[in-house]
Design a protein around this nucleic acid. Structure first.
Lengths: 212, 212, 212, 212
DNA sequence: TATGAATGAGAGTTCATTCAT
DNA sequence: GATGAATGAACTCTCATTCAT
C-alpha cells in the first residue's frame, strides 16, 4: 500500500505533531543539518515509522514544504479576488495578509528563507520558482489594474515596479519573522499595521506622481 | 606559541590560497556542509596543518569571515567621504559600488547571504550586527543629510526610509549575485547600471514629493 | 490452534500462489536477502498473515523447501524403477529426467544451488544431506547393477565412480539452469539431448580409447 | 591522497590481519550478510579506518577478491609452463596444485563458491568470467597438446572434453574444501593425492575398458 | 482470522578532530 | 612545523517481527 497513505490515515493530532516537529527541525537547522534522530526522539516515535510515512528524509521534506506552499498562496488569492479597485488598499492588505501568515507560520517561513540562499535543499528550484511565479503574477496584475484605472503613472516600467514592490514585500516579511535579525536598528519596534501603512504611503508617492 | 601566528607567518601566496579555497567551500556549501577534507585535498596540504592554524573548523571560518568584514565596509566609506551633496547621486553611487563589490567577491557575498538566514553559522550574531550597523549608519547619515539640505521631504520617517532603502539595496544586490534565483521573472536582464538608475528614480519620486 | 494448520486450510489456489511467490523470492535473492515485504506486497496479503501461517521467515522457508524436497526425488525414483538393464541407457535417462525437472522448477533448483554453498540457510544440513543421500543411493545402485551385469569394469572403485558421475551430473544440470554462468565458453549452445548423449558417451569410452 | 595507498602502506602484519578477517567474514556470510561491524570489532580497529582504506564495503570486497584472483591463477600458470609432455601427468599435477591452493585458502574458495550461485556479489560477472576463462584456456591447451601428441583420441569433441574435465575438477575441489558438504557419502575420506590419482586414471581409461 | 502500523536493533557511511611520527 | 592515519559519534535507512484492532 502507498506508505504516504499510512501517514494520512493517522489521527489528525498525531499528524500535526509530526509535521510541526519536523518543520521546526528543518527551520532550525536547514535540510542537511536537520536530524531525523532528533525529530523522532522529540516525538517519541520509532525511527522506522517516519521512514514508513515518507520513504526518506527528502520525502518528509517535500511533503512538508509542498503542503506549505499551497498555504503560502492562500492569502494572495484572497486579495486578488477582492473586488476593491483601490490599488494601495490592496497592496496594504497584501502586506498585512502575508505578514499575518509568516507570523503564524514562522517555521515555514524560516525554511523558505534558508532555501532561498542555500542551494542544497531538495526540489529547491521547483519550490522557489513556484513561489516566485505566484508572487509575481499577483503583483503584476495589481500593477496593471492600477495603471489601467489611472491610479498609477502610465509610464511606469512594470518589471521594475513589480521587482521593487517585491523587494519591499520580502524585506517587510523578513523584518517581522526572523527575530535574531533585528539588532536594535531598523523600524522593528513598530507594529505590523503601522509598518504596512508607512510602506504603502511610501509606495504611493513613488508610484503616482509623474516626474518632471 | 599562538598557533594562529603560525598561519600569519606563512608566505603570503600560501595564506591567500588557503583563505580563498576555504571561502569558496563555505560559499558553496554553507558552514556545516562545508568539508575540511575537500579544502585540504584541493589545497594539497595536510589536514593537521589547517587545524594547527585555526584550531578547528569554526576557527577557520571566523578568521576568514572576520577578515572579509572589513572589506565589506570599504565601498560604503568611500561614498560617505565623498563631498558631493546630491542625495540621489550618492544613493546611485552606493548601488553601483556595492554591486561592484559583490560582483568581484561573489564567494564572500554568498556566505553573507547564507549566514543571514541560517542560525548555525558561528559568530553569526556578531558578524551580522556589525554589517547591519555599518549599513544603517551609512544610510541614516545620507538620509539625514538629504533632509537637512532640503532634498528630501521634512516629514519622512527616518527609520522607515532607511529600512526601505536598505530593502531595495539588498534585493538589488541579490538579483545580480545569485544566478539561480531568477526564474524568468523580474528585471534581471537589464544591466547593473540601468537597474541602479531605475531604482534611484523610483526612490526619488517616493521620497521627494509631499503628500496631499 | 496450530498456526500452520491455518495455512493448510487455505484454498488451494491461494496456498499455491503464496508458496510460488515465496519460492521465487528465495530463488532470486537467497535466504537473508529475500524480503518478506516484497513477498506480501506482490501477493497483496497482509504481513501479519504470513507470520501467522509460518511463525517467522525461517518457518516459511522450511515449509517451502521441505515441500520441494519430495518433488526433487521424483525423477530418480522413476528411473530406478525402470527395469531396463542397460547401464548407460539408464544414466542417459537420468541426465534427461533431472534436466527436465530443473528446467520445469528453475526456482527450486536455484534455491538448492544457493544453499549448497551458503551456510546460512536454515536447516541446510538436513536438507542437503537428504538430497545427497538420495542421489548417491540411486547412483550407487546403478553402478553396482552395472558391475554385476558385466557392463562395467569389475575393478572400478565404486565410491570414485559414483562421485565422478555425480560431478558430471551436477555440472550438467548447472549449465542448463543458471544462465549467467556461461560466458561464451563451454558447450552450452548445444541442446539438452545432445549434451546428455555426449556425456554418456564420454563416460562410456573415457578419453583414450578410440570408439568402434 | 589515494586512500587505498593508505592501506598498502600499513605494516604487513596488520594488512594481512585485516584482509584475513574480512575474507573470513565474506566467506562465512556472503557479501550482503557480511557485517563491517563484525569485522572491525574482531580486528579492534575503528570503523572509519576500514572505510578510509577501501572507500566502502564493495571496495573492500573487490580489493580482497581481486587480489585473490591472481593467486588463483598461479598454480595453473606453473603447470602450463612445465615442459612435461605427458597429458595425464599434467592433469594430475593440476588437480593437486589447485587442491593445495583451495586447501590453503579455504575462505577464498568459499567466497568463490558462494559467488558462483549468488547473483548479488559485486563484480560477479567480471570475476567469474576471469576465472572461468583462465581455467578453460588452460584446459583447452592441455587437451589440444594431448591430441596433437597422439595421447588423446583424435575424434574427441574438445568443448565437451574441456567441460567434463572442468566439471570433475570443480567437484574435486569442492569435496576437499567445504567440510559441511560431506555427509558420510562420497570418497572424501581418502587423501588428496589418492583421489587425484584415481580421477586421473578414470579420465584415462573411462568406465568400460579394463586397465592393462 | 486478517490486518498493517509500530518497533528498534543493526546496517553502511561520513567527517571533524586528535596525536604519534 | 608538517603530516596523515586513526578515531568514533552521529548520520540515514532497512526489515523481520509484534500486536492492538
Amino acid at each position: 500500500m502507498n506508505p504516504q497513505k499510512t501517514f494520512e490515515n493517522l489521527p489528525d493530532e498525531k499528524r500535526q505533531r509530526i509535521l510541526s516537529e519536523a518543520t521546526r527541525e528543518f527551520a532550525d537547522h536547514g535540510y542537511h543539518q536537520a536530524s531525523i534522530n532528533t525529530i523522532v526522539n522529540k516525538l517519541g516515535i520509532a525511527k522506522g515509522s517516519l521512514f514508513k510515512y515518507f520513504g526518506n528524509k527528502q520525502g518528509l521534506f517535500e511533503y512538508l514544504f509542498g503542503d506549505a506552499i499551497s498555504q503560502f498562496k492562500q492569502p494572495l488569492k484572497a486579495i486578488r479576488d477582492t473586488d476593491s479597485g483601490d490599488f494601495f488598499q490592496r497592496i496594504e492588505k497584501s502586506f498585512l495578509a502575508s505578514g499575518a501568515f509568516t507570523q503564524s507560520h514562522p517555521h515555514l517561513y524560516r525554511i523558505y528563507l534558508k532555501m532561498l540562499f542555500n542551494e542544497n535543499f531538495p526540489l529547491r528550484e521547483k519550490f522557489l520558482t513556484e513561489i516566485r511565479r505566484a508572487h509575481d503574477k499577483f503583483l503584476r496584475q495589481l500593477v496593471e489594474d492600477g495603471i489601467a484605472s489611472g491610479q498609477l503613472r502610465k509610464d511606469l516600467d512594470i518589471d521594475i515596479t513589480v521587482f521593487t514592490i517585491h523587494s519591499i514585500f520580502d524585506r517587510f516579511l523578513q523584518s517581522h519573522t526572523v527575530p535574531t535579525l533585528d539588532h536594535g536598528v531598523g523600524p522593528s519596534g513598530q507594529s505590523l499595521e503601522d509598518l504596512a501603512q508607512a510602506m504603502t504611503d511610501l509606495l504611493r508617492h513613488g508610484l503616482t506622481e509623474s516626474p518632471n
